[in-house]
């Protein structure tokens, strides 16, 4: 009996575990968020999360986007969606579309996915783009400071 119970339990675990190439339908959502450099945001390598968003971090966000660091959409409630695709452009490893939108705040329609604690989004349509709205340079200057060279006389 115990073996049967155990077998049922293990089968239940196997059933819960997703296969290697599981596909899901995604959940349709509309969100407003800022395109961020996820490595600097989550690792804390440059300082607090407040300092690595908006204008203070724009040049670094551009570097990271061009460098293939994953781009995320940070919503007002602090949730970050890793961007898988944006308006038909599947290049999220240094692609032009995401590079050109670095630090912008957009409203997007798309499909959201969740896996192992991380959120992902396929942006099907950028509904509106408010540009860069977070003036973080007022509090932090440039992060990192060497991102902005001192102007030559």
């Amino acid at each position: 009996m115990f073996r049967q119970t155990l077998t049922c339990g293990l089968l239940a675990v196997s059933g819960l575990a997703a296969p290697a190439y599981a596909t899901e339908d995604g959940t349709r959502i509309t969100i407003t968020g800022e395109f961020i450099d996820t490595w600097c945001y989550f690792s804390g390598v440059m300082g607090s999360t407040d300092s690595v968003v908006g204008t203070s971090h724009h040049t670094c966000a551009t570097w990271c986007s061009a460098g293939g660091v994953p781009v995320g959409l940070l919503t007002e409630d602090g949730k970050v969606y890793m961007v898988l695709k944006i308006e038909g452009d599947t290049n999220n490893n240094g692609g032009d579309t995401l590079l050109n939108l670095a630090s912008d705040t957009i409203t997007a329609d798309g499909l959201a996915y969740e896996r192992d604690g991380l959120n992902y989004i396929v942006v099907e349509k950028v509904v509106s783009n408010a540009g860069i709205t977070r003036l973080s340079h007022e509090d932090f200057g440039a992060i990192p400071p060497f991102a902005v060279p001192e102007p030559k006389e």
Binding site: M82, N91, N93
Partner: peptide, 16 residues
């Protein structure tokens, strides 16, 4: 993995 859009070569360097 998320959507089922699966090119043979993982996108040839264009995808995460």
């Amino acid at each position: 993995n998320m959507t089922g859009d699966c090119p043979a070569d993982c996108g040839g360097g264009t995808r995460q």
